[in-house]
Design a protein around this nucleic acid. Structure first.
Lengths: 184, 184
DNA sequence: CATACACTTCACTAATTTGTGAAACGACAG
DNA sequence: CTGTCGTTTCACAAATTAGTGAAGTGTATG
């Protein structure tokens, strides 16, 4: 089991207006069920982390997905998630590295803003990154070491390799089609 | 930075007359580079575990993939990997549960034999399991909680949902096509 | 040029995951 | 029925991963 109750955050700094709009202090659409949103972000993150995604990065991704704003600063993210700035820093570093989040400087401020790229992150995740291709290459090494593509193990591995290549190619086509349906 | 040393147990060196097919006395193709095969299994497992797969299960899967035999007993698997029987037991339980490995009794023995299903395991992993569909459903919940499909966050989530559904459907088609090319 | 704020890095603690040995279990051989 | 051997379960130890507070770094502002 994972932490079901996010760490309680204390409210630092007394500066600024003294009223509380429910926690985030920013752009809260009053019609929106912030409690539900927060819960969704947790489930979203949990699912992604089951797929091998770093947990905190998944949380950050979720936070950006549900944000009304087009982008958030690291500070805002940490505040909304109730985690330390350090945690956000690490999570964001990873996300930027794999191209799932873009960082852009904010004009009159020292903080950068993070936002989801125009090409949504899952496009990168799905095929551009070429996971299937990489697996195919790996399995090909297997074919080589067992030496004989006609042996039982050789045949098994070769079939897997072919399958992965097939999927990779098909996926590229699919992405193409998706983009066409989206941008006529 | 993951484990750089494969499970060390017995088996000191890797070259030489190492004719250890230990008591199991099994189908070692003398032309085959067993050292290389073992190394491949480790890399294979590492890759899968990066994709969120339990590590030992990935090792077992790899072992079955490279085996000359059509199936192996738990004992054989443990021996080849140099891990405890308990570890194999747990790994195999998971694999059977998700349908990536089939268990079949061995006639004149108390041990079962595990083998890869006729429908290769990655077919199950790729689409049948419906990961994309599940993500789509999850994201749909997000659309609901943010309340408005036209808000920035609502639109983002809705697009992701559509994408996941699109991929799921396409993948089903692709699998179809794959199976047709394989069985004319 | 000095200050303050926002982010980053670092060393450490907490929590989760992974794997082990030993005991319990169950099916087949006698 | 009883003994044996392979498998499974269990409680615990080791290793990995996550997240924190505090100190460090850099930049826009006074």
């Amino acid at each position: 089991m994972t932490n079901s109750t996010p760490p309680r955050r204390k409210r630092p700094d007394g500066s600024g207006p003294a009223h509380d709009d429910g926690g985030a202090g920013v752009a809260v659409d009053s019609t929106r069920d912030e409690e539900g949103v927060r819960h969704f972000v947790e489930r979203f993150a949990l699912t992604l982390s089951n797929l091998g995604f770093p947990r905190m990065s998944a949380r950050v991704l979720g936070t950006l997905m549900v944000a009304v704003e087009p982008g958030l600063t690291a500070g805002q993210i940490g505040q909304r998630l109730g985690v330390s700035a350090a945690a956000v820093s690490g999570a964001v570093r990873y996300l930027v590295q794999v191209g799932m989040v873009a960082r852009e400087p904010v004009p009159g401020s020292r903080s950068d803003r993070y936002r989801l790229p125009d090409d949504p992150w899952y496009l990168a995740g799905a095929a551009k990154s070429g996971v299937y291709k990489r697996v195919a290459d790996l399995v090909q090494e297997g074919v080589v070491v067992v030496g004989d593509e006609t042996s039982p193990s050789g045949a098994r591995l070769a079939e897997m390799r072919d399958f992965m290549l097939f999927i990779q190619d098909s996926l590229v086509d699919i992405l193409d089609r998706w983009e066409r349906t989206r941008t006529p």
